[in-house]
């Protein structure tokens, strides 16, 4: 591990003042500290932001404001979250393990890095870790990687479950930074790799997430379903966050986001557009899923994700029909 300095910020202003080139903000450390041990992340300094006053979940109008430093397990266990946003609670609980969730923060969950095996091992080239060094995953093992929105430079996926639910809930990410405060919508925080896979998000250097705001829960029933190789403590092969509002057999509204398929939580807008106003039948769900998957570009070893995503979308929507 490269020598680095560590300091603890007391408030956002203090954190921003401590930020310099080479600084990284430290949340629960469940990903960053691993990456530092592996030699993947090599910060000069860490600014610990876990003590900032962002550790509460509060009502915000008819919605909810979740502090950036709230621990994942506290978020999942929060009574209002469980009652009004059960899909979010399910998504958080489907990630990692109890011990990791006890440490991990909301902002850290959003900003965790891909688990692409090439990214995590410095003996391999990786455009995300070392720009312009190449992407061995495209011709190598990409079985867990992206089928949507990838580029010739990177096929990584974003690993978060929570972010998939937030993308379906139209969450708004509150950010403060050297240039002032701003709000970034979900989806929209995470970017597609294009020619700059080293940038996971739209955040600028030094910007700090302070909160995630949830609008009032959408009408209808919701579910988060994650497919994985083992029953817990595994990243998604494919996951889906779905909200379905049906009246008189017709879809009034629908939200669909997919995880494990792209460099960002993948909001299935084509499927949603197909579904709004359509009958809530298996055929229509299938047609919507196919519409979304028509833009999938699977690679040889992850082609299974296309039928898996299709089945998962159809199945999850069917289960949400009242």
């Amino acid at each position: 591990m490269r020598p680095f300095s560590y300091s603890r910020a007391t408030d956002a202003r203090d954190a921003l003042e401590r930020f310099q080139p080479g600084t990284m903000y430290l949340g629960g450390g469940t990903n960053l500290v691993d990456l530092m041990r592996l030699g993947v992340a090599r910060p000069d300094s860490l600014v610990d932001v876990t003590r900032l006053p962002y550790d509460t979940v509060e009502a915000a109008g008819d919605g909810l404001r979740i502090g950036a430093a709230v621990r994942n397990s506290d978020l999942a266990m929060h009574p209002v979250v469980r009652e009004r946003y059960p899909m979010l609670a399910r998504a958080v609980l489907s990630g990692a393990s109890g011990q990791v969730r006890n440490m991990a923060t909301v902002a850290g969950n959003l900003l965790q890095r891909t688990r692409c095996p090439y990214f995590q091992d410095i003996s391999h080239p990786c455009n995300k870790r070392r720009p312009a060094s190449g992407c061995p995953a495209i011709d190598g093992d990409h079985s867990g990687l992206a089928v949507f929105g990838h580029s010739e430079h990177c096929v990584a996926t974003h690993p978060s479950d929570m972010a998939v639910a937030l993308a379906a809930l139209d969450a708004r990410v509150h950010v403060t930074g050297p240039a002032g405060d701003r709000v970034v919508p979900m989806p929209g925080l995470h970017r597609l790799p294009d020619g700059e896979p080293e940038r996971d998000t739209v955040l600028a250097a030094g910007e700090l997430i302070t909160a995630v705001e949830l609008p009032p829960p959408p009408a209808g029933a919701s579910h988060y379903r994650k497919v994985r190789e083992r029953a817990s403590f595994a990243f998604a092969l494919v996951s889906v966050a779905a909200v379905l509002d049906v009246a008189d057999g017709v879809v009034r509204d629908c939200r669909l986001a997919l995880g494990g398929v792209a460099h960002a939580p993948w909001r299935a807008e084509l499927a949603e557009a197909e579904l709004r106003g359509a009958p809530a039948t298996q055929e229509d769900f299938s047609r919507a899923a196919e519409a979304e998957l028509s833009r999938a570009r699977p690679l040889p070893r992850n082609a299974y994700k296309v039928p898996l995503a299709r089945n998962l979308i159809v199945r999850t929507l069917q289960e949400l029909v009242p």
Binding site: P117, D121, G140, F235
Partner: peptide, 25 residues
């Protein structure tokens, strides 16, 4: 254990990627 043919490396060389059964399984 996934072998990367290009480099000859074992790819999924940690317990997040090399899956053993958990209690839930």
């Amino acid at each position: 254990t996934v072998v990367d043919e290009r480099s000859g490396a074992f790819l999924n060389h940690d317990l997040a990627q090399y899956h053993i059964a958990t209690c839930a399984d």
